[in-house]
Structure formats: C-alpha cells, structure tokens
Design a protein around this nucleic acid. Structure first.
Lengths: 235, 235
DNA sequence: ATTATTAATTGATAATTATCAATTTACTCA
DNA sequence: TGAGTAAATTGATAATTATCAATTAATAAT
C-alpha cells in the first residue's frame, strides 16, 4: 500500500484538451497551438491514502494538479509534532513554489485515494515564454492560495475549538455536489486547527450526538442548520 | 491627522531607477527601456499612523510598494471584531490581488508613519505585455506572501499565548538593522494572535519585567536569549 | 472469523485563557 | 501645564482546553 502508480503518460495535445476537469486546471485557457509547445510528458498519478506526493527535501521538477481526492500540506516542527498548513482539492495546484526555483515548502500527503497530473516545470516555463495564456491562470491561482489562506486564518484560528471545528466541517462540505465529504482523522483535525486530538474527538463526538454530523467510515455529511448552533457562541 | 499626502508624482523613468530600495521593490529587474513603457504617474504617498491605504470596497486601480513603515491587513468580522491577517514592511507589496481584477481582500491601515509608492495597475499590465522582466518579480512576491503566510500559520497560531507573543516579537525584530522595532498596541497584538487584549498585555508586561523586552514609547528592543525561554515550554 | 493494532472516545484533573471590573499610566489638546 | 481621554496593567473568577490515563470501537492481517 501507500503506492504511487503512473497510470498514463502523454503529451498534452489531445489528452489535456479532453480533460474532464479542464476548466478547473492550469491549462484551462490554452489553445491548440499552445499544447504543441509541451515537450515533456505529463504523467497521471494515482496515490493511495497516506502516500507522499513530495517532501520538502525533494528535487523540484514538477507541479501537480489535483484531479480528485484530498491532499494535505504538512509542516513538521522541530519538536516532532506537525501542523497541516492547507488542504488541496480538485483543481488545486500543489508545488506551485517550484515555479520560482525555491524548494518545496511542505510535505504533500494524500489523505485519501487521490489522482493528480504531474506537470514538468520545464513545460510551464516553455509555455510561459511562448504564450501569455498561462500567466493569467498562474496569477489567479496564486491569488486563490492567498485568499484561502486568509480565510483560513480568520475562520479556523479564532474562536472556541467548537466553532473552529464547525467551520472546518462547513469548509470541507462546501461545494461538494452531494454534500458528503471525507472526514479527517481526529489527529489531523487537531493538526489543522491547532488543538489536541482529544479535544477534536470530544467535539466531533458531540456533533454526532447532536445530529449535526453523520458519518459512515470516513464519509461524512453535516446538517448545516444544527451545526450553525455551534459556530459562534455570541450570535 | 490620519492624513494621506501625495508628496511626489513622477513617471518611473529617472525616479524609480534611483530608488534607494530599488532592489527590494517590484521594479527591481526592469531595464531602462522598460521604464519608458510606464505611462501613468506613480505617486509617492506619506501616511500618518492610523490612516487607511485602501478598504475592501474601494475601486481597485493600484498596487502599493511599502517604502518604509508598517501596514496591517485587516479583516473585519460580522460581529464587529477584527483580525489582522498579515503585516507588511519595507519592500512588501500591498493590494497584489488587484492584478487579477478581484476586489481588495482586506483593509490596509498604517500602524505608524508609512511611505508607499502607488503604482497604477494599468502600468503593470502594460509592462507585462511588453516585457517579461516583471513576471519574475510578481511570481516571486506571490510566493513570498504564500510562504510567509505558512510560517505565520505554523508559528503564530499554535502553542501557548506566551510562546506566540514571543514568536511575534522575534518576527517583528527580525531583519531590523538596529534590532529595534515598532511594538503594536496590545489590542493589535491580540488581533494578530487571536488572543484577548488583556492576555496580550499580561504577557508583554511579564516580558518587560523579565528584561526580555524593553520599550520606549512604541519603540521596542528584545533580548533574544531571555525571550527564548518563553518560546516553547517543551524544549 | 479471529487476533493484533491503531484510532476514537470518555473521564478526571491541572493548566491556560477569557471575562468582567478596577486602577494606573500614557497621550492629546486646549 | 493640566484636564480629559484612551491605552495598558492588574486582580478575581469562570470557562475552556490540555494532559494523563483508561476503555471501547474500528481496521488490518493472518
């Protein structure tokens, strides 16, 4: 287990243009001519739960688009504990820092079965120098990272543990078509919100008892109305 | 007071090339030819403490380079409280989200006397379409924002209040030539670290008593050795 | 299916932080 | 300078969360 499997390798030309999440990914705006500029192969990777997409020390030759699944960006602290800095979902870009030639800033680890496109940085650079279409996508993505980090900071680092967990669940459920989502382990919830595993567990259990959260294995659904009662004590 | 004064207006050509913080700012890599592409005037603004550089609702026509001083990016919450999302210092870029045509994401407020360059977004766009020099600076800056946000999240949102305040002071003192820095109000420290004003005050007072922090008005110096004792309880 | 292992839950208690309130200190403006 | 206002500090107490420890539930391996 914890395998990474290359299921396909291709040069963008046809495959990327038929990509079912085309409008979400980096190459959204590219024209047919642009695709001819892709020289290195793009790989399609399937990651098992727990497998590592990249680590901080890794050589940085790729950026990754998440096609499906869930990836956590993790920063390990000197004392051995860790903090989850951000979650990446469908359409998100991992390893964007590679484009500046700086090292990866975190470890990227699949939280569930995940499929990604592995795009060589050289491809991006080539495209960038010959076509301006990619530029908008890249800056837009940088901006998305930034604004999500801000929201994260505002919603998920203040207030009581209870309201932080409620906000996290609402964030996780957000924009899922069927409203069901992957519920992280209590340890990961702790690492996401800077609370202990036990506190995370108590609150999740409390939400379940109140009927605000229903789980089957790691698949969860929330009752937003009931959950809102836990969001803020003051209003 | 709380005035914003336009002290100078110029077209980049000579003025920007002589800028004393040229290597820190957006135009660092530009060549003489590039500057000829700047058509709209760049303004030099002087902000008094407390004055507002921009608000979320503002029309977004400018990005700003901080020449000196300290700016806080503030997000107001529905219940009237606020959270400081990030601090900007010399060389940092404010309002970078304007480049994607999205609204400003925060209020930007001067925490002390601050001077900034106000750069029309149109200038940036013009430069970008005619010269590739700016691209590197922009992506590098985006990346810096991202990596600092990550560090922030890891250092300033976990651990005890005491260690968070210690980390904030170390961050503020960092890279100041004379090691002296502007100490924010206790309320702002609270908004930065998601703790109450009172807790912030108690900890600052404790650091002063221990000789780990010395203040004269809002100018502060830290004793890093002594401060480290407060950083982490566990090591 | 059964055992071994890991994750989740719960309890009791200690430590931390928020809250409410009062006082002292610093700053502003006439 | 001196009164008025805002900011910082401190105290007492309540609420929240961490810590340590035990138990139960879920998952994986044979």
């Amino acid at each position: 287990m914890k395998a990474i499997e290359i299921t396909q390798a291709w040069n963008g030309t046809e495959k990327c243009q038929q990509c079912p999440i085309r409008d979400l990914v980096l190459f959204a705006d590219l024209k047919e001519d642009d695709f001819r500029l892709l020289h290195l192969p793009i790989n399609d990777l399937e990651l098992d739960k727990g497998s590592i997409l990249y680590e901080q020390k890794d050589e940085i030759n790729f950026v990754y688009t998440i096609r499906s699944g869930l990836v956590k960006l993790v920063r390990y602290l000197p004392n051995g504990s860790y903090r989850i800095i951000r979650l990446l979902r469908q359409g998100d870009l991992a390893g964007i820092e590679a484009l500046n030639g700086s090292a990866y800033l975190h470890h990227a680890i699949a939280m569930q079965s995940t499929s990604v496109c592995q795009i060589p940085v050289k491809n991006i650079e080539q495209l960038n120098s010959h076509s301006s279409h990619l530029y908008r996508q890249l800056t837009a993505r940088w901006q998305k990272v930034q604004s999500e980090a801000d929201i994260w900071l505002a919603d998920l680092t203040m207030g009581s543990s209870r309201s932080r967990v409620a906000n996290l669940l609402i964030y996780l459920a957000d924009s899922r078509p069927d409203e069901s989502f992957y519920l992280p382990s209590r340890e990961d919830i702790g690492a996401l919100l800077a609370i202990t595993t036990e506190t995370a567990s108590r609150i999740i259990a409390e939400f379940k008892r109140a009927g605000a959260l229903n789980t089957l294995r790691h698949t969860a659904k929330i009752d937003k109305i009931k959950l809102r009662h836990f969001q803020q004590k003051g209003d």
